[in-house]
Amino acid sequence: MSEKNRIEVVYALPREQALLELQVPPGTTVAEAIRVSGILQAHPDIDLARNKFGIFGKLTQADAVLRDRDRIEIYRPLRADPKEARRKRAAEGKIMKKGGGETAA
């Protein structure tokens, strides 16, 4: 085990993605790492009370303790309403992709 955990903090916009690597001591929480990373200063549009965040696609709490090589992701809300989008696709008569073409491995 290394003394420090190597983690990443990511905030992504369509045209520009901020991917910050940093090393934090073991026991650091998600909120602490976000604060230390300086991403809030670089992107003032992030509001931690409003923007949800998680690790590798899974939402987490601010006091969750980080593990080595975690990637903290700060998410943005959807712009489309999924239900409305589905209703619209159905109205247009588009064939719904069931399971999105997924095949069981």
Partner: peptide
Amino acid sequence: TDAIMGANKLMHTIIVE
């Protein structure tokens, strides 16, 4: 390659790099 970040019912974004 973990190049898409996002979570359930939240915006997904490509990390171009």
